[in-house]
């Protein structure tokens, strides 16, 4: 669905690259996470893929279209939910969606259906300018689905949303993906990436450091640990023990047999930890 080969971009064309020689591929029906800290080159890459930025170097095809010679019809196939909500504040939620649907040449979703989907069903006749930040974000998200995109770009889709709404948004993404929609997810939130993505790419300083599935990355970079809290001789002790190393395994058996265990859980590495390990950089 997306093929990127040797993509480089310099804003001032002065040899300082925001992204440098980036190559990756996103398969049809996949949820692909593009992860990195601010200024890593996520937005630059995404903007080139969506045609918002002109392709300078490299070869990029999106939904079968060559981005170098972008055709307007490509936009019938893609949807984009922006990190910063961008809806007409002087128009109602319904008017916003009604307006956008008329700009596409393909079958579109009913505005009321979309508003219901994102929990704004009863707010259709309220001007978007009167919406809270979260509501505007949901409206922006709803708008990105209006043309039934086969390739869906999501930029921080759950930012600023309360946990229950964020959970709903994640469910919508999963449901659309189940229908065959390819998702390109840009985020610095490793939890949502871990939950949704089939594969993730870690980008730092315009360079992709790692690409793989979260599961493989965890296996490759994560430590298999058990955290246990127990009482021994009247004293509370916390320990992290490896489930692989023999000494730790034996010690764990002793603790289970001889001590009063308060809590015990396995602790696999998070994507965030893997990111730090794999790239040598934090996510902020």
């Amino acid at each position: 669905m997306i093929k990127v080969n040797g993509l480089s971009h310099s804003y001032n064309k002065d040899g300082k690259y925001a992204v440098k020689d980036v190559s990756f591929e996103v398969k049809e029906g996949e949820v692909f996470g593009f992860l990195g800290p601010s200024g890593a080159g996520k937005s630059t890459t995404q903007n080139i893929l969506t045609g918002l930025l002109k392709l300078q170097e490299g070869e990029v095809t999106v939904a079968g279209y060559d981005v170098k010679h972008i055709k307007n019809e490509m936009f019938n196939r893609i949807g984009m939910s922006f990190e910063q909500s961008n809806v007409y504040s002087k128009m109602t939620a319904k008017e916003n969606l009604d307006f956008y649907r008329k700009l596409f040449d393909v079958e579109t979703k009913e505005p009321q259906f979309l508003l219901d989907l994102v929990g704004l069903g009863d707010k259709g006749n309220i001007k978007a300018g009167e919406f809270s930040k979260g509501m505007k974000h949901r409206l922006t998200f709803a708008r990105s689905m209006i043309n039934n995109p086969t390739l869906w770009f999501l930029d921080e889709p759950t930012t600023g949303l309360d946990p229950s709404i964020a959970a709903d948004i994640k469910d919508i993404i999963k449901a659309e993906n189940k229908k065959g929609v390819t998702v390109f997810l840009t985020t610095h939130n490793m939890y949502i990436a871990d939950e949704l993505c089939d594969r993730v790419a870690f980008i730092v300083d315009g360079d992709i450091k790692l690409i793989d599935s979260p599961k493989n990355l965890k296996m490759q970079y994560g430590d298999k640990l058990v955290e246990v809290e127990y009482i021994k001789d009247g004293e509370t002790i916390n320990e992290s023990l490896s489930t692989i190393e023999e000494n730790d395994k034996k010690k764990l058996q002793d603790i289970i047999g001889q001590s009063d265990i308060q809590t015990m859980h396995t602790k696999e590495a998070t994507l965030e930890e893997i990111f730090i390990k794999g790239t040598g950089r934090g996510l902020i």
Binding site: G51, F75, N86, Y88
Partner: peptide, 18 residues
């Protein structure tokens, strides 16, 4: 100015209108 304030030009640029 309204389009700029609402940042809607980017959204328009992702529709099939040249």
């Amino acid at each position: 100015i309204e389009e700029k304030e609402d940042r809607t030009i980017r959204a328009i640029n992702l529709t099939p209108i040249s």
